[in-house]
Design a binder for these strands. Sequence first.
DNA 1: CGCGCTGTTGAAACTTGTCAAAGTTTGTGG
DNA 2: CCACAAACTTTGACAAGTTTCAACAGCGCG
Lengths: 247, 247
Amino acid sequence: MSAPIALHPVPIDKLRVACSTCGLKELCLPVGLSDEELGKLDHLVTLRRSFRKGANVYRAGEPFDALYAVRFGFFKTTVTAADGRDQVTGFSMAGELLGMDGIGTDKHTCDAVALEDSEVCVIPYGRLEELSRELQSLQHHFHKVMSREIVRDHGVMMLLGSMRAEERLGAFLVNLSQRFTARGYSPSEFYLRMTREEIGSYLGLKLETVSRVFSKFQSEGLISVQQKHVRIIDIPRLRELIGQRPC
Amino acid sequence: MSAPIALHPVPIDKLRVACSTCGLKELCLPVGLSDEELGKLDHLVTLRRSFRKGANVYRAGEPFDALYAVRFGFFKTTVTAADGRDQVTGFSMAGELLGMDGIGTDKHTCDAVALEDSEVCVIPYGRLEELSRELQSLQHHFHKVMSREIVRDHGVMMLLGSMRAEERLGAFLVNLSQRFTARGYSPSEFYLRMTREEIGSYLGLKLETVSRVFSKFQSEGLISVQQKHVRIIDIPRLRELIGQRPC
DNA sequence: CGCGCTGTTGAAACTTGTCAAAGTTTGTGG
DNA sequence: CCACAAACTTTGACAAGTTTCAACAGCGCG
């Protein structure tokens, strides 16, 4: 099996793109910046990188020097225990930030892997700190992004610590649905970019259990699922299942 | 049952204490600051608050406007699901920062509760952002603290997602041991400030399971445990159990 | 067009949870 | 300071949920 490799870096000017003209600016790091401030961000984010399915953005142990904003595509992040066990800690899609794990120790502590052909903007971290000393709104928004990552992680802990298999998968599907919706995609129909095993790792379940719960949901008319294609038929009932208000 | 309440705030000057003279400055937010910078931090942190066992530092939903640095004592943080289920997301001790969950939405998203009589320094968040625009080292260290919180959470996900009950409790004990050691206490002997139920919630186990595993560890000569008093007898074997190098 | 990866399903085994009872500690009020 | 109640802990027996092992089907890439 040949390891997929990253494509060559592409200077942003070749692509004529910048934060100020990026379609994701409402979702990504630029949230809340004025036009002038956005212009300064353009000087910071000058590099894009593409990754083929299976390629690593970074690996645990590598030196940390940049964050990565997902432009398009889909990533997973995984941590590896001393004994080699892997755990998927999250899935990232357009507008989300990868790499914040590395700030604390100047080394990445997890792997980030593209689950489909994808592209990120490279945000040199030293310069981000520099600029956020200058721009209060950037500083504040960056802190919000980190804080939300912490809150998201707490949600995963809740999921792993006190939910049963059906609730976990239900919560996972509802979460995906919301994130796709926020990006203008259908709330009820999408392709999973990850395998059953990756879902299982994220949810603390074995792949067979994930598969069984998918089948159960389907037999109950909650969803329709064929391999990686999922259609959510009854979102209210799915929300109910995970203890949320139906709407 | 009468609800325990917080004590009155105590102006810091009354106590003649400041970051620059605090014994925790090697552990807490001031890490890496020069004396001059430390002096500026003293103006930011001017308030202490004490909490009786059982009192809340903050509750989910309350407006966020400050971080809290633990001076002494012990806290738990918990998130509550829509259906009322609680999940302990962490335990905090001297030098650790509480409240970063609130930055993202300007509201706290979890509860922080004192597990024994405790004291914190209040760090007004707006002024922390202000000062960290001025002091690069403070900015960088604050980012490191948030990043480490994210990394810590990934560790908990690993624990909850792919370890069995014995491994979880073993990892928990080793982690406590390390944190006590870093604070100058015995690595092998300590009092648990939390109940079996709180440990169980944190580890994704029921309290009975926690109790059983404690008993099993004791019968195997790994630890000696009586109620809240724990003595770790065989740290190498405990590390081995959780898949770490013995030393 | 076939091989390998991914997904599905069944049966049995195992881990953890549930329920119950009793012991222990802690805190409170008399 | 004692007595009692409440909270916490331990342990057993049994149940439930999830994993393990295994077999097979389907899809997709080379």
